[in-house]
Design a protein around this nucleic acid. Structure first.
Lengths: 216, 216
DNA sequence: GAGCATATCTACTCCTGCGTAAGGTTACTG
DNA sequence: CAGTAACCTTACGCAGGAGTAGATATGCTC
């Protein structure tokens, strides 16, 4: 009704794969700063420099879109941990590498972390997706601890290993949360602090003991 | 327009203070199972056995109501920790008591915990309230560690103490989260597992060492 | 047992934002 | 350079739910 007079330079056409990634990037940013509900599809479309029906055409409903974000960021997160943790290294070295990988991810993808950690937990349909991811991480950690126990020829109950894994993951999330709000902070520093806490325990720390990475 | 024919037994009048508590109880339950946005004011009013305008008259808007829930549950949580942690006890005894108090609260107020932990984190306006509460808890924990360090005549950087406090609080939240989903689990058991992890550290645990409470 | 403050209800209005129908625009292909 | 398939848009339908207006019931006080 209005145009076709000026025939505006209008828009650029891009292949589907590219646009989908742009949309996901935009969605992660918006979900991160607004929260799931407060984020509107209009704002996401706007942030992606595209109109709303495109989002629906490519990624489906708002729920679908959010789930796609969680899956993409979750996969990246998990990948950044498991890719650096070797199978046959000493327990403390594995722990150290895992923590570094984790905090490096959070430092580099603060938006993604916010979506995963702060948003997905509250919405029931996605809580399941997140729980699944968390369970996989906890399983990785518990498996690591289990192998270390075997290597030390001591024994431990399955439940205790799992509890320790939960504690470790929770501690990491907590510090990551702090990190996400302090852009000036160094991820490796956070990793070292958590390493000290979780490996040595409060008792040793109070006695002034410190853990040192073997490789600089 | 419709009634005044049958003059139904209709409703019971209750003093404001009582109704307010009923409403808060209902709101916590509904927010807990639905999440902030999915919870409707109609459902909350219904759960409280009252009609919607009453909620607005007494507690204000939906935001106000949610904030009231967070404040009430947060105050209770903090109280259940600080009330059992003496000032002049050994560090491990303080830690043990604090953890027991915390997990006892979560075990007894799972709904309240869900509101605090899973919901408040995601909504921007309330994230501040929750952050304030968390900061107070972290400060309590850090203060405890600080006194313990002094008692041990060792030294530690302020930042390291705070990081340890964050890690401890995060680990506790993580296990509490698990506890909230396992009604059959014993809160004291969870407290003991976390005590082992945080006090001894992973290294000691892997060597088969265990921490024992001095009092049964 | 009449008056009055307070507690309570029913029945709306209106806004926000998800999801879609119907139709232009671009660029590739023969 | 016409035909066509994939991109992309504007403009709307519609539902859910926050918040409110106005009327009614209750029980305390004298």
């Amino acid at each position: 009704m209005l145009a076709s007079v000026a025939s505006r330079p209008t828009f650029k056409r891009l292949p589907r794969a590219v646009r989908e990634q742009q949309m996901l990037d935009a969605a992660v940013r918006v979900f991160s700063r607004r929260g799931f509900h407060e984020a509107s599809m209009d704002e996401i479309a706007d942030e992606a420099g595209i109109s709303k029906p495109m989002v629906y055409a490519y990624l489906g409903s708002k729920d679908d879109l959010f789930r796609a974000c969680v899956n993409r960021e979750g996969t990246r997160l998990l990948e950044s941990i498991v890719s650096v943790v070797g199978d046959d290294l000493p327990a403390d070295e594995q722990l150290w590498r895992g923590l570094r990988g984790f905090f490096a991810f959070v430092g580099a993808h603060r938006d993604g972390w916010a979506v995963l950690y702060r948003q997905a937990k509250s919405r029931q349909p996605f809580a399941d997706d997140l729980a699944a991811l968390r369970t996989r991480i906890v399983a990785v950690v518990a498996g690591m601890l289990g192998r270390a126990v075997q290597a030390a020829r001591t024994s431990a109950h399955e439940q205790d290993l799992t509890a320790s894994a939960y504690a470790l993951v929770g501690a990491a999330e907590s510090i990551a949360d702090w990190l996400a709000d302090h852009p000036e902070a160094d991820p490796d520093h956070s990793a070292a602090r958590l390493m000290n806490f979780s490996w040595l325990g409060a008792r040793q720390l109070l006695q002034g003991e410190l853990w040192q990475p073997s490789s600089a």
